[in-house]
Design a protein around this nucleic acid. Sequence first.
DNA 1: TTTTCATTTCGCCACTTGACGAAATAACGT
DNA 2: ACGTTATTTCGTCAAGTGGCGAAATGAAAA
Lengths: 123, 123
Amino acid sequence: MKMKTVMNLTKALADETRVRMLLALRGGELCVCQVTELFGFAPSTVSKHLSILHQAGLVESRKQERWVYYRLPDQNAPVPVRAGLAWITQALENEACIAADVRKLKQILKMDPTELCQRQCPK
Amino acid sequence: MKMKTVMNLTKALADETRVRMLLALRGGELCVCQVTELFGFAPSTVSKHLSILHQAGLVESRKQERWVYYRLPDQNAPVPVRAGLAWITQALENEACIAADVRKLKQILKMDPTELCQRQCPK
DNA sequence: TTTTCATTTCGCCACTTGACGAAATAACGT
DNA sequence: ACGTTATTTCGTCAAGTGGCGAAATGAAAA
């Protein structure tokens, strides 16, 4: 794999928020407004983080109806990508802040996405 | 492993020079002046990079005579550290710039360390 | 076609990072 | 003990990063 490509991977993993986003996606795909709710940043900030992860190949996305869903890549992804995800996941297993994210996400998934979005995009 | 510790790892790997330093150490320990010669940065810059790698646990060091030698950690290192090294090594196998570093390093190892240091510490 | 609205892009700001040279440190040789 | 010297620390500076809000985008709904 090219050095540039590898550095895109390592730089993408060099931010705590982005790492937590990846781990949050282990439970299945999420739309931007759900991730926004989980981390409490502005939608534009969340979108930027997700685009950096996407650029690195660490997430895939699809658009359905009004929402863009992001998910972890499938088995077709390059080995270094999957290995990087496995590495960071393993390193953080049993980590308290990750468990807290999972708990909070569980609550968010009970809510209506439309409601979440409208709360974030006022007017 | 604590989130903070993991982020020290990912941030240490998020710089091309530091990654190349790690791979250069695969052939065995190197002293600071050898690493300095390999990458062409100021000694203070190289020292800073090595200290960041050390802080993350990705290298160990020992002092002998006039020189400080850095090396990759042994099997006693935490799993995430060894896994991170294995990951980055695998991702960059067959990468041209790494092979070039190895070639250049081979030349440097033929030289006398004392000579290298004196060239770098003028006066 | 026009409106609505979730997401992205852009411009700006504060903070961090990586580079250097100068000065401090620490350990060896004399 | 003293001087030499390899390495580290410190101060500074330019460049990169992550945050936000406003504006642009683009696709579905009306």
